[in-house]
Simulated scan of single mutants.
Amino acid sequence: MTSQSTPRHSLEGLELLSSAVIILDSDSRIVYANAAAENLFESSVKALVSQRLGDLFLNGDHLADVFEEALQHRFADKRLDLTLERAGREALQVHVIVTAVDNPETPVLIELRENVQQLKLDREERLLDQSQANKELIRNLAHEIKNPLGGIRGAAQLLEFELPERQLKELREYTQVIIKEADRLQTLVDRLLAPHRRPHIVGDVNIHEVCERVRSLIMAEFPQGLSIKRDYDLSVPEFRGDKEQLIQAVLNIAHNAAQALSKQIKGGDAQITLQTRVARQVTLAKIRYRLALDLHIVDNGPGIPPDIQDRIFYPLVSGREGGSGLGLTLAQTFVQQHMGVIECTSKPGCTDFRILIPLP
């Protein structure tokens, strides 16, 4: 049976599995791959059949060694987590189950499942690294901008003061533009530096008090056409944190959502949901926590544009005309100061910001 594929109709049950399954002959060549394997390897059965397993990956030697062990019946089945590197494509984080089969023509069956937890950890690590780099960049850039701003504003004021009376009315318009724009930039710089300047004031935090404060602020600004649904788990315990920072973080997200719902608000069917739950056995920044706050801010708006979904927490990235692109950056910073993280999934009709913070 070497170099020939196993008839798919004889293995129909494997076609129904969500995990990738491949069957190898005694020469380590693929004779069968199910539909999930085609999706995982991003390749058709025709392209996969007759290839050696180890040749599919840049680091396939380890799999080849395990295949040899299975061929010699050193184990019935073996489980391992691997990172399989591919040329020109993203590496696969997979949990692999290698099974020795009592069939000389097809002696080895391998099942591969994407290791979602590892992918999540890697993504969180990248986010933390990016966030740290962004904070350093922002802090340095803000200081570099801040220093000459005072001089520019002061020079414009001095120039206005020194203008002759006959020119004051004519030229004051221009000096005022300089002063107002310098003030606007000063406000922007202050917002950039705010998380690094303000002390972290720790106390007991009830997350539902935070949500209710945010709800009242949003409803005051958007009294018509917007409803804010509460879906609270009152068993969520209090935890130690900075209440004002968390209010600001949740407010930034909810306010962005409300602004994105302008069309729905006009139609009277805009909705934001504040949902609290307790998540169990959560890993944040490689640390395992028994309990965590699981807070969702969900809206039924148009969704975040796909081209910026991976960059929404970067500073100065905004999907809204006139937006500063700082609200989500500050929200992520405040949540990270509580050892937590913000995640986001978005599609038209449902954008879900999820805040995870360790609980005692």
Score class of each variant (00 low, 15 high):
127 L>D: 06
126 R>L: 08
140 N>A: 15
98 V>T: 07
87 A>H: 15
121 L>H: 05
102 D>S: 10
94 V>I: 03
140 N>L: 14
132 Q>T: 08
110 I>L: 10
124 E>C: 05
143 H>E: 04
125 E>Y: 09
139 R>F: 07
113 R>P: 00
137 L>K: 03
138 I>A: 11
123 R>H: 12
125 E>L: 10
114 E>I: 08
95 H>C: 09
89 R>V: 00
94 V>K: 07
115 N>Q: 03
119 L>S: 12
120 K>R: 15
122 D>P: 06
143 H>D: 09
108 V>R: 00
130 Q>L: 13
99 T>M: 09
100 A>M: 07
133 A>K: 00
142 A>C: 09
118 Q>C: 08
134 N>K: 07
140 N>I: 15
88 G>L: 11
116 V>N: 06
134 N>D: 14
133 A>R: 02
122 D>T: 12
103 N>Q: 08
129 D>R: 15
126 R>P: 00
111 E>I: 02
135 K>Q: 09
94 V>D: 13
93 Q>W: 03
118 Q>S: 10
100 A>D: 14
108 V>C: 02
99 T>P: 01
110 I>T: 11
112 L>P: 07
96 V>G: 03
115 N>H: 07
110 I>W: 13
89 R>A: 00
127 L>F: 03
89 R>K: 04
121 L>C: 01
131 S>L: 10
120 K>Q: 14
97 I>S: 06
137 L>E: 02
111 E>C: 01
111 E>K: 01
135 K>M: 00
130 Q>W: 12
143 H>K: 04
124 E>L: 10
120 K>G: 04
135 K>G: 05
87 A>C: 08
125 E>A: 14
142 A>H: 02
141 L>S: 12
122 D>Q: 11
137 L>S: 04
